[in-house]
Design a protein around this nucleic acid. Structure first.
Length: 420
RNA sequence: GGAGAGGUGGGUGAGUGGCUUAAACCACAGUCCUGCUAAGACUGCGUACGCAAGUACCGAGGGUUCAAAUCCCUCCCUCUCCGCCA
């Protein structure tokens, strides 16, 4: 959410953001609604002031004047009963508008329609050159008895996964390694819920807009989060944090659920795109002036994890059309998948400015005692099982076994390789 | 799932219809006084919108009333005891 004052004063910048982010929104209708609300509010508040003054006068009035005052109060109350609902309805409409206004991207963000206009910033690590015919993720899993896609589909439907044996341990090892790594970078480890109230998704900025990708449990009016960003963002909702508490930086491990409604038929095979997975998410609430530095830190943390896992990757900057409404700046990390001969998105680093904090009511008292919104950022730490795809494929050996990088070996009981 | 208690400003907490549209204390900030790791005096001190007057907010939403933190209804949450349970 943007500040209404900002929208009034920087209308053209907002208009440009709406166009470049491909958002459906009539900004002029929003501004007209803003004027309607202001007019209504002025009238309602004047009436309320009159009602309050009148009510205050009643007990002090002489007996013979009381009747008249009460009659006047009744009339005022009647009039307000007509107007107040209109004001509330008008404010509601305005809020619906405001929730759809995207954040204005930083000037450095490349203009673009979608992910094909993202800009590669750099490549890191070495793409493996195999002197044998490498297997793909599914072949490796099946050869080693590490998965059972057919049977788990019987239990949980398509886009499910089940890991067995060393692969099941590997998943836990990678998640725990990532948690340990981020704890070492002074992020507070968090084991958090995926079960969330619907309003937390409005807070995070996923709603309105992303309703169809979220699981809903009507019996309890709860939803399943697609990322720990959602529960962590709402953890301090409505609070005014003392300056000493900032920054709040977390590494949150949670289950993650996505309906994948818009991606029917894409990546149905294997571990790339599943409905239920596990993810370590980095999440930061900080003072505005520290936001950019945190962006670099979160990116460096993710890269540090990939480097430790000895995986080749590239960093791309997302174009305006591929950014998501709330984002000021966004980089994806894509990790090399040998069987596809391409990089696949495994991490996503976002700087939201105060856009998310405004929705959630995340504020702090600055050094001058002024109440301000914090800035929020998030980046993947590691997400499994997707990360297993490049992991298994890049580290496979001629006999079908998979090499365990040195950094991970302590988390795998000292094993240097599995399977084969 | 059953029974009960409760949700008030940064904290404690008063307040069962109008002299409280939130007392008091603590914490915090400023000024003054005091020769010294102390004590005291005074003032200020929630958030949002508004130039201001003002308006709204006492878990959320409705209702009754000239007037609601206070009465009524629905919901949410917390705590205690019992039951069930990984």
């Amino acid at each position: 959410m943007l500040d209404l004052k900002y929208i009034r004063e920087h209308t053209e910048a907002v208009r440009k953001a709406i166009v470049s982010k491909r958002v459906q929104l009539d900004l002029d209708a929003l501004l007209a609604q803003d004027r309607t609300v202001t007019e209504l509010r002025t009238r309602v508040e004047a009436l309320q002031a009159e009602r309050n003054a009148n009510a205050k006068a009643v007990p002090k009035a002489a007996k013979e004047e009381k009747g008249a005052l009460i009659e006047k109060g009744k009339a005022l109350s009647e009039e307000l009963k007509g107007l107040e609902p209109s004001l509330r309805a008008a404010e509601e409409v305005l809020r619906d508008f405001l929730l759809r206004v995207p954040n204005v991207p930083l000037p450095s963000v490349p203009e673009g329609a979608d992910d094909s206009d993202n800009v590669e910033l750099r490549r890191e690590g070495t793409i493996p050159a195999f002197d044998f015919s490498p297997l793909d993720q599914v072949e490796l899993l099946e050869k080693n008895g590490w998965a059972d896609f057919e049977r788990v589909a019987r239990v949980s439907g398509s886009r499910s996964y089940l890991l067995k044996g060393d692969a099941a341990l590997l998943e836990q090892a990678i998640l725990f390694f990532a948690m340990t790594y981020l704890a070492g970078k002074n992020l507070t480890p968090l084991s958090t819920t995926a079960l969330i109230r619907p309003e937390t998704l409005v807070n995070s900025g996923h709603f309105p807009g992303d309703e169809e990708s979220v699981y809903y449990l009507p019996a309890d009016d709860l939803m399943l989060a697609g990322t720990a960003e959602v529960p962590i963002n709402s953890l301090y909702a409505g609070e005014i944090l003392p300056l000493e508490q900032l920054p709040l930086a977390f590494a949150g491990l949670s289950a993650a659920f996505r309906r994948e409604a818009g991606s029917a038929g894409r990546d149905v095979r294997g571990l790339i795109r599943v409905h239920e997975f596990r993810k370590v998410e980095q999440y930061v609430m900080c003072e505005p002036q520290d936001g950019m530095q945190w962006f670099d830190t979160l990116l460096a943390n993710a890269e540090g994890i990939l480097r430790a896992l000895e995986l080749p990757y590239r960093v791309v900057q997302n174009s305006t059309g591929d950014m998501g409404a709330g984002k000021l700046l966004m980089y994806d990390i894509e990790t090399w998948v040998p069987s596809e001969g391409m990089y696949r998105e495994t991490h996503s680093c976002s700087y939201l400015g105060d856009w998310q904090a405004r929705r959630t009511g995340l504020r702090y008292r600055d050094a001058d005692g002024k109440v301000q919104f914090v800035h929020t950022l998030n980046n993947t730490g590691i997400a499994s099982p997707r990360i297993l795809v490049p992991f298994l494929e890049n580290h496979q050996q001629a006999d079908g076994s998979v090499r365990i990088p040195a950094a991970l070996q302590p988390f795998m009981g000292g094993k240097t390789s599995i399977g084969g």
